[in-house]
């Protein structure tokens, strides 16, 4: 596997990091911006089950509505972070992802891919479920791949602070460029620019489940369990 441009050299230049968190702290708590409900099993009358967008302000809780209206929901946090202890963040070309999927197929692994971004509130809301999923499932039988659509230029200002803040246990890959087309071909799913997107593949590499919306842990379990031996 050839993963380009490892960021670690760059990152390790500063062992002590000034962590500036703008909005992420609250955004990551879920239930924000009225985005898709954390629990995907929602009432059929709500739109939350199908998209990443936020629910109408009039249906949001007061604090959600305030955030949804663009009011400051951020705070600055300065914190000493030992970035050397964090999992790697690397850029990922489409061909690298293709190799990664081929390797998983050869190893008879079920694969779960999550496309997300720090600017995407529902992505952050569902992130704890991926942390839980990674900790419970990632291993010989399952490969979890976390891919952010954040631009590489925001590595220090957005991606790394969020990784540190949430203590994300898995490696993070960054899309090369902002064009999802080559990745869409590799993952066999039409990436439209909307996030989050989560894809599940069986051990033969067939796409068996896809979501272009926020999901919950139960969704992941329900999609993956039947694929395991």
């Amino acid at each position: 596997m050839t993963q380009n441009h490892t960021m670690e050299t760059h990152i390790s230049q500063g062992i002590v990091y000034l962590l500036i968190i703008t909005g992420l702290h609250i955004m990551a708590t879920g239930s924000l911006l009225g985005c898709s409900a954390p629990d995907p099993v929602v009432d059929s009358e709500t739109e939350d089950a199908v998209t990443i967008e936020e629910a109408p302000a009039e249906e949001a809780a007061p604090e959600e509505a305030a955030h949804a209206d663009g009011e400051p929901a951020s705070e600055e946090v300065s914190e000493d972070i030992d970035v050397s202890a964090l999992p790697p963040i690397t850029t990922l070309a489409a061909e690298d992802l293709e190799v990664m999927l081929a390797e998983a197929r050869d190893a008879d692994q079920v694969v779960v891919i999550n496309f997300w971004a720090t600017w995407c509130p529902p992505c952050l809301a569902e992130m704890p479920y991926f942390v839980q999923f990674y900790e419970e499932y990632d291993g010989d039988e399952v490969r979890f791949i976390s891919i952010t659509a954040d631009h590489i230029d925001t590595l220090d200002s957005a991606i790394r602070p969020y990784q540190a803040q949430e203590n994300l246990p898995f490696p993070i890959y960054i899309l090369e460029g902002m064009d999802p087309a080559p990745y869409a071909e590799v993952v066999d799913f039409a990436l439209t620019g909307a996030l989050p997107v989560t894809l599940v593949y069986d051990s033969e590499g067939e796409l068996t489940q896809s979501w272009e919306r926020e999901i919950g842990f139960e969704d992941l379990e329900a999609a993956v369990e039947p694929l395991l031996g």
Partner: peptide, 10 residues
């Protein structure tokens, strides 16, 4: 390519 928030569809 546009990136952004998904459209909440009926």
């Amino acid at each position: 390519q546009a990136w952004g928030c998904g459209i909440v569809r009926e």
